[in-house]
Amino acid sequence: MGGESVGTETEEQPHGATVVVDGFGLKGPRGWVFRQVSFRAEPGALVAVEGPSGSGRTCLLLALTGRMKAEEGHAEVGGLPLPRKMAAVRRISALGQVPGVNELDPAFTVAEHLRERALLQRRYDGSVRALLRRPAERAAAARARIDEAVKAAGLDLDALPKGERTSVRDLERLEALRLSIALALMGRPRLLAVDDTDLKLSDADRAEAWALLRSLAAAGTTVLAVCSEAPEDALRITTLSGETGETTPQASGTQASGTQAPATTEATTTETAASEPGAGARPAADTTTGATDADRAAVGETAADDTTDATTEEGAADALAETGRA
């Protein structure tokens, strides 16, 4: 990164968050999960974290969205330093479905998921003036936010087997992915992180999934997507499974603007033990944009330093470890 200095972003800058990573590393109980990750992505970039299962992809995604605490190097998301401002980064970022962290409930219908997220969003980021609106006005505002997110995610409710009353268990993989993205978009995040983007998708569905993420990036949101194989037009960050020490990134300090990326841009990392159940660090609680002081205190923040104590949410961490993925 050449000692690059990054200042805090201002309101005049694009909606998407700039992501700057320099020598970033996370170590679990059994060794390094990833190490020496360095890259730069401008607002509205499409960043693809590719590599085999167990190579630290998901943990890197969680660390860059403030859900896991890195031990080495530093990163900034929207001008907010990691790991010192983890909670602040969580408030400007959102996760699609991540197994063991924020999974869709298979028994819920699509409508139930959407309504629940709209209610939570109103609680956390609603102004006092908004809370004083009449019930009919609040309901209309929630419906408008749902419609906006569903449209942006390309989720056609009428095309589902039972419309919005379709249970999550009855959704095709691509439609479940669209639903998880729609839920994430309700918080209007500056950084959207999507795990297992191309998992169990046909070639046609994979093309649709990447087209969706490109459209979100083109609209200004910075997108970070874990995948097994990155598309050519994305900023590629490659993770590698390994048994020993660190590896030096093949390219660092690379910039990506919008969905344009330099050819064969890669940064490599090493994962030593996270492919085994129980390995890796623990993810922090997934908080919604605009969390209250009480919510922030619950995850161990202070006014001067809002990192979590070795990160929390042990149940989510155990579930993540049980998947055998990192």
Rank of each mutant, 00 (worst) to 15 (best):
M86F: 06
K151Y: 00
V6I: 10
A326G: 15
P231H: 11
G7L: 13
M68S: 07
A87N: 02
E42K: 09
L160M: 03
E116L: 13
R90A: 04
L157V: 05
G31M: 04
T109H: 04
S127G: 08
S55R: 11
D295I: 11
L114T: 05
T268E: 12
S228R: 12
L62R: 06
A94W: 02
L212H: 03
L171C: 04
Q260P: 01
G96R: 01
S252V: 12
Q260A: 15
S257C: 13
A261H: 10
P14L: 01
G187Q: 15
T58E: 01
D170V: 08
D105A: 09
A153F: 02
T289G: 10
T272W: 15
A319H: 01
D195G: 00
Y124M: 08
T292N: 05
D147P: 03
E314I: 04
L235F: 09
G66C: 04
L46I: 00
G54M: 02
V33Q: 14
T289Y: 07
S127P: 09
A251V: 12
A256M: 01
P189G: 07
A63C: 03
A256F: 10
A256D: 05
T8H: 14
P283W: 09
E12L: 14
I92Y: 01
V33Y: 08
A153R: 00
G96H: 01
R122P: 11
A152G: 02
L114A: 04
T289A: 13
A204P: 11
D318G: 09
A107T: 10
S275D: 15
L131W: 15
S93N: 12
A144M: 01
L320S: 00
R122M: 12
C227T: 14
D306N: 14
A207G: 08
A294C: 08
S241Q: 06
D305P: 09
D147C: 08
F39M: 04
L199C: 15
Q255F: 13
A274N: 08
T288F: 14
R122D: 13
A87Y: 07
T265H: 14
I92N: 05
L104M: 03
L64F: 04
A225T: 10
E103A: 11
R117H: 11
G2K: 13
A317R: 13
T197R: 05
A267N: 04
R190W: 00
G242A: 08
A316E: 06
G315R: 08
A319F: 12
A140K: 10
P231E: 00
D305N: 08
F39Q: 03
D205I: 02
L119H: 14
A230Q: 02
E112L: 06
A182H: 00
R173I: 12
R91V: 07
A263G: 09
E137L: 12
A142I: 03
V226A: 15
R173M: 05
D203W: 13
V168W: 10
T265N: 13
A234E: 01
L171S: 00
G100T: 04
A176F: 01
L104E: 02
T323V: 10
A310Y: 13
